[in-house]
Design a binder for these strands. Structure first.
Lengths: 179, 179
DNA sequence: CACCTCATGTAGACACCGACAACATACCCG
DNA sequence: CGGGTATGTTGTCGGTGTCTACATGAGGTG
């Protein structure tokens, strides 16, 4: 159906894609009726892959540890798939997300909320309101991925940002209080 | 020179801009030699304004309280200036940021790092490495602004996200441990 | 005043793009 | 066999960024 991320991309153009595949300029429109459709498909693909390499890979864990590994895995996925990550960062793409994409993201959020509950039952920040922890987690994951990948955020930190710093930052939030 | 944000925008086009101003299609190129130049100017404008309404407005504060107000102010600014915020979120724009823009951001980061030092001296997370706190702060601010403004992040939280939740989330990090 | 220069605006052209329509081809299934 | 569906092709349209050549006017200098 499609071989994505053929080259390091993101001046994506349907016509360039057609050229790359050696087909006529309008051929891609048979598969994606509009350019937004293509980006939708890429976003869905990216989200599926991201969830596959975070939530699924931590299925045997639970509670706080699972949350930490999920967050670390998310940042690592963003690092390893900058093209997909850029698509997911694009507000214009996500604003018109399909119902299926929204549903997938909601399922992912549900897992996070469930594990927050478990972690709280295990004594992690048990006095906090769960939705505040959830918002914090989501913001921290999204922001850490950006800091880890976007050159403009790397610049102000320059050499100061050592390899493990982002994981250490995630752990500031995702660790037991008595550690 | 320019009246920006004439309408709620971000299918920005030099020709549309020219039409809006009642000039010929190539006139804007006299002021911004390329479209990327225009976005650069917008980004610089946005960053200047953002810093003006956060760092400057908290000048009389210091340490932890200043950091908290800066973070809250940043999120509020993003909420109130979605168009500017979208420009600053765009990786393609920021990747080619001018030296002046980089310098401005670096100055902003310097203030944050200084206040982190002050806060640590006041007993806030004094055992942590400063750069880890800095990375955490930057990620949290960037992520919170996105969660606060991007519909795709609002959706999974739905009505669960109450007005004060994001501030409460920021406070999870930016508060004294004994509170 | 004459003259030059620079900033600004204009018109035209080019290549690229997304999208649409009309037509061709091939394949599957009743 | 025959028709429908999926896929691809060519051609076209309007829109866009950018370049070039040309106009015009303001300001300063001789």
């Amino acid at each position: 159906m499609k071989q994505l991320s053929t080259g390091g991309i993101e001046t994506l153009s349907l016509r360039a894609l057609a050229r790359e595949l050696g087909v006529s300029h309008a051929a891609p429109l048979r598969h994606f009726s509009t350019k937004a459709d293509l980006l939708q498909a890429l976003a869905m693909d990216g989200v599926t892959q991201m969830i596959g390499s975070t939530a699924a890979a931590t299925e045997e864990l639970c509670g706080l540890e699972r949350l930490r590994r999920m967050a670390e895995g998310y940042v690592e996925w963003a690092r390893n798939n900058p093209a997909y990550h850029m698509v997911l960062r694009n507000p214009d793409v996500m604003r018109h997300a399909s119902d299926a994409l929204r549903q997938t993201l909601e399922d992912f959020a549900r897992v996070q909320r469930k594990e927050i509950e478990v972690a709280q039952a295990q004594g992690w920040r048990s006095e906090e309101r769960p939705q505040v922890l959830f918002v914090h987690l989501v913001a921290l994951m999204a922001g850490s991925a950006i800091v880890a990948t976007d050159p403009i955020y790397k610049a102000p930190v320059a050499q100061l940002l050592q390899p493990g710093d982002i994981d250490a930052s995630l752990e500031l939030f995702l660790r037991m209080p008595e550690d």
